[in-house]
Design a protein around this nucleic acid. Structure first.
Length: 651
DNA sequence: CTTAGGG
DNA sequence: CCCTAAG
């Protein structure tokens, strides 16, 4: 996965070609994207847990919570069983999971023996590629960079044909900017990541770097789940490591399978009533996945078939769309009691909270907590009991480390525990709308991450999410995974992108968080959404068409987009996606195209009319320049009309 | 599956 | 963002 993009840089020239017949481009088959990703399913354990907590209320923190969770899990499992059938058809793919959940995705592989066996095979191709890439990556980075710069330099432009080179006019700018792009990447990917952690595993590390190199990656948000491919991660646990690869392979496979399923299984048009929650994100996800897997079509098909034959059970807890994702919902005015109760069960809600505002008590009712998504894959022949056990283990692993509650206000994490609610700006009234809670896996450090502003837009209810750590546990190794995870979490505060790799599962906390962002924006659409927990049942058919949650482009993303378009031109959105947003699973080429469209529009209107985060004028100028340049190029390619125009003018 | 556009 | 027609 990683890096192929780089190559494009090298071969920049080729890239420049405005458009190549599809056939020619087709070669991209080489595209590497492999199979990364893991499949994850979302489990709304949290929600369940929450419910439990509320009900039982007991607990002080840790242990009780665990217990509760375990139970819930079980319950969930059962529910899952019921819905299994349903799910099978409606499997949510990772994206959906990702988006929705946020949390750590856990994948459990029960008897994945075959997975192991398969792994080598499945990954071999990619691996080779990767390894080679990896080895060369860093070294190449600089060279590539240079190459790019050269490419863009005036000279090269001159030398080359206009057509071949990227916007001449912009050349200077590119040149200049190129570095920025990389910087952008690096800082996040490289810098943030704690070298030590990854270092042990070169494999793990590289992915990130490569990614960064390859394309800008701004995806902190990650959806990542996909990132599975990178394997990585915790040096610490050997077991995990071993496990991971397998997981990855499996995940990939599963994903693919899922994807296939979608296609095959999903009726073109389902009745709303028939739809399952998963439907909601399905579409989007599907698309994304496709992208990633495009290169492996062949394999994919195979997988597809496979899936049909051997079906594993996949449980997804969260189906729901974004809404579902939710997290915990707090109802505005509820009883204080409820709040406390919840609090009690879980953690610590800020005692201050209640206490802080002397005069005004902030009343929150937490209806449910969302649990991290878990993906469980086990053979059909596995017993229900084993399934339950697996899930239970996973949950315990997650919770075992203890949970911490994070408080989000207006999308930002409130880190200072000593602040009073008032000081934190959490007022009575606005609280509900702007306050969010998150459950985090053992937070010793407390790393927090700030959620993207976008997330902020929540709904009236407060969502609490919990990014639990992702567990990477595999069957037996679950526990270890958990430990590691927590560790990782603690350690890696700001990471962005990812860590990772795809491979696994381990996301940094941040990442998790970001994912979690998903939690945030749950569309209010369904009333049920709040209920989240219910994985099932009922009502929820509406999901199907759910619209993807809005994820405004950040300036960094815009820059990456501009950069890519400057180089590739308009009309090659897939390439743009691959080049600059390969890691951003939630950005499809269509999204990029649309964004470009809006950017062009934005650049044309007065600053006062613009909304959202202001995009630097410089970027907008580049947008216009690039747009003009590429439009012209396009026109040249089809000189039919141009001549006429010209002639006319002349005449 | 990708593009390109309209909604 | 979504939906679709085209290719």
């Amino acid at each position: 996965m990683m890096s192929l993009e780089m190559e494009s840089c090298d071969r920049g020239q080729a890239a420049e070609v405005p458009r190549v017949p599809k056939s020619a481009r087709g070669k991209r088959s080489v595209r590497k994207k492999e199979a990364q990703s893991q499949v994850m399913c979302a489990f709304d354990l949290l929600a369940t847990v929450a419910g439990k907590l509320l009900d039982e209320g007991e607990g002080s923190a840790g242990a009780p919570a665990l217990t509760a969770c375990a139970k819930d899990v079980r319950v969930k499992q059962e529910q899952c069983n019921e819905e299994r059938e349903h799910l099978k058809n409606e499997v949510t793919d990772q994206d959906s999971c990702n988006e929705s959940a946020i949390l750590p995705h856990v994948v459990f592989q029960h008897s994945m023996n075959h997975a192991r066996n398969e792994y080598p095979k499945a990954k071999s191709e990619d691996q080779d590629k990767e390894s080679s890439m990896i080895s060369s990556t860093k070294a190449e980075l600089s060279s590539n960079f240079r190459a790019i710069a050269d490419l863009w330099s005036p000279e090269s432009v001159e030398a080359g044909d206009a057509v071949a080179s990227p916007m001449p006019t912009a050349a200077g700018g590119f040149h200049k900017n190129a570095p920025d792009m990389y910087n952008l990447l690096d800082p996040m990917d490289v810098d943030m990541k704690p070298p030590p952690l990854v270092s042990s595993d070169s494999t793990g590390e590289m992915p990130r770097g490569l990614k960064g190199v390859a394309g800008y990656s701004v995806d902190r948000d990650d959806d990542d789940d996909d990132k599975s491919s990178g394997c990585t991660t915790h040096p610490s646990t050997t077991a995990n490591r071993d496990f991971r690869p397998n997981c990855t392979a499996e995940h990939s496979r599963v994903r693919k399978l899922l994807t296939c399923k979608y296609r095959n299984a999903a009726p073109p048009r389902m009745h709303k009533s028939d739809l399952s929650y998963s439907d909601v994100e399905r579409k989007p996800s599907f698309r994304n996945k496709k992208m990633h897997y495009t290169r492996q079509r062949t394999q994919r098909s195979t997988f597809k078939r496979r899936k049909l034959f051997d079906r594993h059970t996949v449980l997804a807890s969260e189906f729901g769309r974004a809404n579902g994702k939710g997290n915990t919902k707090v109802t505005k005015r509820d009883s204080h009691a409820a709040f406390l109760k919840a609090n009690k069960g879980t953690e610590s809600m800020p005692s201050q909270k209640s206490g802080a505002s002397n005069d005004c008590h902030v009343k929150l009712k937490i209806k449910s907590f969302k649990v991290p998504e878990l993906l469980v894959e086990i053979p059909e022949n596995a017993t229900v009991g084993s399934l339950k056990k697996t899930v239970l283990e996973a949950v315990n692993a997650i919770l075992g480390g203890g949970l911490c509650v994070g408080v989000l206000h207006h999308g930002k994490k409130v880190r200072d525990d000593s602040k009073t609610l008032m000081q934190a700006g959490i007022g009575q009234d606005d609280v509900l709308d702007n306050l969010g809670f998150s459950l985090e896996p053992n937070c010793t450090h407390n790393p927090l991450q700030v959620q993207p502003p976008e997330d902020t837009s929540f709904m009236e209810t407060i969502d609490i999410t919990e990014p639990l750590a992702r567990i990477a546990p595999a069957d037996s190794s679950c526990k270890h995974g958990e430990i590691d995870v927590s560790h990782e979490l603690a350690v890696t505060p700001l990471t962005m992108n990812y860590q990772g790799s795809d491979h696994d599962s381990v996301h940094s906390p941040d990442k998790v968080y970001r994912n979690s962002r998903a939690l945030v924006p749950v569309p209010a659409a369904d009333p049920d959404a709040g209920a989240i927990v219910p994985v099932n049942k009922s009502k929820r058919s509406p999901e199907q068409g759910q619209r993807r949650i809005r994820r405004p482009f950040s300036v960094a993303e815009v820059e990456a987009l501009v950069l890519a378009v400057e180089k590739l031109g308009t009309g090659r959105w897939r390439d743009v996606k691959l080049r600059a947003f390969d890691n951003a699973k939630h950005r499809t080429y269509v999204d990029l195209k649309d964004k470009w469209k809006t950017l062009v529009h934005t650049a044309s209107i007065s600053p006062q009319q613009r909304r959202g985060e202001p995009v630097p004028q410089e970027l907008l100028d580049r947008v216009l320049a690039a747009q003009a340049y590429w439009s012209q190029q396009q026109a040249k390619l089809q000189p039919k009309t141009p001549p006429l125009t010209e002639a006319r003018l002349l005449t």
